[in-house]
Structures are given as C-alpha cells and as structure tokens.
Simulated scan of single mutants.
Amino acid sequence: MPIELYQFAISHYSEKVRWALDLKSIAHEPKYLLPGMHVRTIRGLTGQKVTSVPVLVDSGHVIQGSAAILDHLEEISPDPALLPADSKARGDALAWEKRLDDEAGPAVRTFAYHHLLQRPKLVAPLLAAKTPFWNAYLIRLAFSRVEETMREMMRINEKTAAKAQSVVEDLLDEIGDIYRSGRYLAGDSFSRADLTAGALFAPLFMPEQYPVPWPKPQRLPQAMAQWRQDNRERLEPVADCYREHR
C-alpha cells in the first residue's frame, strides 16, 4: 500500500511533512482535506478525539503530528538524514524543532489568519485548495460562521494577533542572526530544524512551491501587506533557506 498523507494544503505543519517526503524522495499519495469537514476522516483514522493534521498512514500504521511523522520518515528512509550525527547538534536540532512547533507555528497561524479572515474572497481558496472546486464557494456562502468558528477555536483576535506578531518578529531576528553568520540552526548542515523554520514561516513569505493560490501582494489586507513590506529583511534569511533546500 502507498504511503498516504492526510493534510490541508494551507497547513504549514503539513508543508513540513511534504518537504521531508520530497527531500527523501518517498513516494506517497496526498489526501487533501477541507478544514472542518476533515473531522470524521481523521477520527476514523486515529480513533482519537484530536483531529489535527497532518496524519500519515504507512502500511496501516497511523502517525499524527509533523514531528512524529518526521521521526517515522527518518526510520524508514535514513538518507538523506535530517538529524546531525553529532549528539549535541542532534539535540539542538530537536530542541529547535520543538520550539518552532510550539511557538512559531501557532504564532504564524494566528497572525496570518487574523488578517486573511478579513478578506473572504482571498481566504476561501486558500482553505479549500486542492479539494473539489465547489468547496471554496461553500466556504464563502457560510463565511460568517467559518470565521467565527476559526477565531474561537484558535483564539484569534486583535490582542492575540499582536502578541503573535511579536513572537514572529523575535524568532525571525534570532534565526536571521544565525543564518547571516553562515550557519545552520543545528550543526553544520541542513536539518529538520531548518526545514521546520522554513515550512512554518512559509505562509508569511508565500513561496511558489506551496500548493495554494497565494493572493497577489496588492490584494492582501493593508496591515498584512505593510507588515510584509516592513519586515522583508527579517523574512529573507528563512525564505532563502527555504528556496535553497525546497
């Protein structure tokens, strides 16, 4: 049976796994889901109440969560390695990955959705990307409820978005200092720490490799467009690493 990856196209945690699969040249079948409508599918796979994506299914073995999935991929396809051989560098890579998963991922999501949810015509195609075309129309028809649910579930509001922006900027500054010194986040080679940074910050620099129809910069909400312009230098080191290795 082929490996299956259940995911949202827009999910930056899913992008983390897509990238790892591509780097390791692991053949897989993508299963794109519509946020909200995915619940029954994920619960059917995992048997758990938690319905987060990505979920990888390999020969009946179900793995939920990007970090656990990367662990599994390292086991079944060690080359190229995404963890350094040196024990200290290995520990650093895993520590960076956990920090980014815990801090950068939620902060980027909160900041980006706070602004994008203000534009139903922009965000509906992003949420429905890679699913049947009519899903984008359904999201727009029910958008007031969609927005209310997303903001409530992810605790997205002016206050949390402002805090998320600060977290994003501080992390980008720290990572940028490391990259500008010519180093990787852990050890002397690209690792899953760098992969995690690139994937989780990708919705802010909107790379072409990402499987969603990013809006043109001029169509973004003004505050988000202005932030991207003001923080271009902050984003560039992470974006460069993404482009080089993705």
Score class of each variant (00 low, 15 high):
110 T>M: 09
94 L>Q: 15
141 L>D: 02
66 S>R: 03
85 A>M: 05
145 R>K: 15
123 V>N: 03
121 K>L: 11
71 D>Q: 11
117 L>I: 07
108 V>F: 07
72 H>M: 03
113 Y>P: 00
133 F>D: 10
82 L>Y: 07
114 H>R: 08
131 T>K: 01
90 R>C: 14
72 H>D: 02
92 D>M: 14
85 A>Y: 05
99 R>D: 11
68 A>Q: 11
139 I>E: 01
91 G>R: 10
121 K>P: 00
122 L>K: 07
73 L>R: 03
122 L>V: 12
126 L>M: 14
97 E>G: 06
89 A>G: 08
130 K>D: 01
122 L>Q: 08
140 R>H: 05
116 L>M: 15
135 N>Y: 09
116 L>G: 07
126 L>R: 03
125 P>T: 13
124 A>P: 06
73 L>P: 04
82 L>S: 05
111 F>S: 05
72 H>N: 02
131 T>L: 01
138 L>Q: 06
119 R>G: 00
109 R>L: 14
121 K>G: 10
69 I>V: 15
138 L>W: 12
74 E>G: 13
98 K>F: 06
105 G>R: 11
112 A>F: 15
144 S>C: 06
127 L>N: 03
80 P>F: 02
117 L>T: 07
115 H>M: 06
76 I>M: 10
119 R>N: 10
64 Q>D: 03
85 A>C: 02
139 I>P: 01
67 A>Q: 13
128 A>F: 01
96 W>M: 11
136 A>C: 04
74 E>A: 13
80 P>K: 01
64 Q>G: 03
121 K>D: 15
142 A>H: 13
141 L>S: 08
119 R>V: 09
101 D>G: 02
133 F>T: 09
86 D>Q: 12
135 N>T: 15
83 L>F: 09
117 L>E: 08
137 Y>N: 10
144 S>F: 14
